[in-house]
Amino acid sequence: MASARIEAVDLSKSFAGVPLFGGVSFLLDRGVLAVTGPNGSGKTTLLKILASLMRPSTGTVRVESEGRELSRDERRSRVGWSGPDLAFYPELTAEQNLAFFRRAAGFASERHDLRTRLAAVGLDGSGTAVEHFSTGMRQRLRIAFSFLLDPDVVLLDEPMAGLDADGREAVHRAVASAARRGPVIAAATDLEDLPPADEVLEIRGRETVSGKPKP
């Protein structure tokens, strides 16, 4: 089974000289790390940095898979990410969207496989274009996107936003199964909006506090 780990070393980010957060360090090889903090504390930015969608102002991110450090390019397919500003092609169906992203990432896409992935988040393979999707359905599709390439590391920003009980249940299942295999990092303002976590990283202004979730 693939073993993977993600390490952050003294990450900080500032925009135009104004610091957002600093001193973020952790090492995770399996289980769920919850990232919490108030609005504007930089949770989304931190997850984007971990997903190589942004560069940190200082510090480094290392992702290892099977004992080997992955390049920035390899991380694109080995690290799955979704966040609130992730959008899909409005004219295309959910299945067409996922099929395209798999092919653009360099993976073959099969109809049967895509249907299974959509069913896992409670979406059917119907011909509805994404522009007619509700908020909850879009969120379900985002979750499917983060697991689309069977990544070693999963990053979920606001995974529960707009989801009903059924949808939350689907996220719990997906996260639990991924956390047995490797690291999962999930971010939200409050711990209640996240799947059960093994560790917590709280961003408070320029300092971060890590610890265990309180029972």
């Binding site: 997903a51 969608l53 390019d73 992730l86 959008a87 899909f88 092609y89 992203f101 653009a104």
Partner: peptide, 20 residues
């Protein structure tokens, strides 16, 4: 405009996108 640039960046490098 559709906000899909982010998803595309998450899966494909610039050279693939620009070539396509």
């Amino acid at each position: 405009e559709t906000g899909t640039g982010l998803a595309l960046r998450a899966v494909a490098p610039g050279a693939v996108v620009i070539a396509g």
